[in-house]
Design a protein around this nucleic acid. Structure first.
Lengths: 203, 203
DNA sequence: GCGTTAACGGTTCTGTGGTTCCGTTAGTAG
DNA sequence: CTACTAACGGAACCACAGAACCGTTAACGC
């Protein structure tokens, strides 16, 4: 992708930035309300108060827009809480994810984002990057646990964090079970227990 | 949904059954190749050697067709293997799921099915039923482990089985990491360890 | 400021996913 | 075997997502 060929790269200031901002917010709203299916760029343009030509020219397809939205979301980070124990930290993380996924706005949004990523390589890459950023933010708590001797040396921090989220996403997308706090607590306990037993030691 | 109002319910034999069969197979192929997005019923009709009017009349929308496909898939069950230990059984399960999701045909198909379910309640219900059937098939191995005293009494068998699959689906859909056998083994170990520690005891 | 042109936006046009119409084929009851 | 009609299928039709065109606005370099 040559820089000059894509609109918004030569004059990124002022209006261009404003348009991007409002279109991304509108896309968020539309994804939340309509889901990934039944989403057209003209509608998003209307919500954003922007000409639909602009949206088609800059993002081209729904997938492309979602990919850009994910890149934007990856930049805003929420700081993690530190409790002093692995289980405490993982539980805090699990609760955060659980609250996010059950939020009436965020839940549907994340579903839509994941659905969009299944169909397009570019979008999938953006999704992977987004979650990689989030996982990296929480990985330090596992490293601290290793320093304290709570988990064996060589434990893969990323895998532990992913193990906490996995059951929550499984319920959201696949089994359809209740995403309650008890599930979050269990997910954190399971990950902590397995980590302490050395299951996530990198070979 | 009144029975008489939907085509294919009054004369389900012969041609009708044949049409359903070939359309579902064609839908499977199309989903595998094109994914959920960029899928139109006319194309499926062509593949199935069936008039597109028929497909529109009987299933109406892509989501409806996917829901029916999931109902069909829920009926064909693969028997589980028994190894005599919880870890052995869970590893067998994890490997089966891992092989399914990395299969060049099944992997994309499942991605598409899950994506379709995010957008439509009916399809989501069908997906949940499909996985519920699969989970039920494997739950006995946890009950047997409880009988052997490997896991505490009151352990929720379904949650244990779901805990095995969860990391695999997380990698498939979200993190994009390698779905190799090592991951499957780790998933089984983590679930077994947590189950033995009593994490999945129902409150 | 001033000029250049990147980027926006209203309008028109077009391809195609989906619907409607109606004639044909073949299940099922008797 | 015959009659009845559920279900199929080809063809014409329609609505609308997305592309093309071109005039307008406003970034950014000087």
């Amino acid at each position: 992708m040559v820089d000059g060929s894509v609109p918004g790269t030569v004059r990124p200031g002022g209006r261009t930035a404003r348009v991007r901002e409002s279109v991304l917010r509108a896309a968020e709203d539309a994804l939340t309300e309509q889901g990934f299916t039944g989403l057209d760029l003209a509608d998003i343009a209307r919500r954003a108060g922007v000409g639909k030509t602009t949206v088609y020219r800059r993002w081209g397809t729904v997938s492309g827009l979602v990919a850009d939205l994910l890149a934007d979301m990856a930049e805003q980070s929420a700081p993690r809480t530190e409790t002093g124990t692995l289980l405490g930290d993982l539980t805090a993380n699990a609760r955060l994810v659980q609250r996010t996924l059950t939020d009436p706005r965020q839940g549907p949004l994340f579903k839509a984002l994941i659905a969009a990523a299944t169909g397009d390589t570019k979008t999938a890459a953006a999704l992977h990057r987004f979650y990689d950023v989030r996982v990296r933010e929480w990985a330090p708590c596992v490293r601290q646990a290793a320093d304290r001797g709570e988990v064996p040396e060589g434990t893969d921090p990323h895998e532990v964090i992913r193990a906490v989220s996995a059951p929550l996403y499984y319920h959201l997308l696949i089994s359809g079970g209740r995403l309650d706090e008890a599930l979050a607590v269990r997910a954190a306990e399971a990950a902590a227990t397995a980590a302490r037993a050395g299951v996530f030691v990198r070979p």
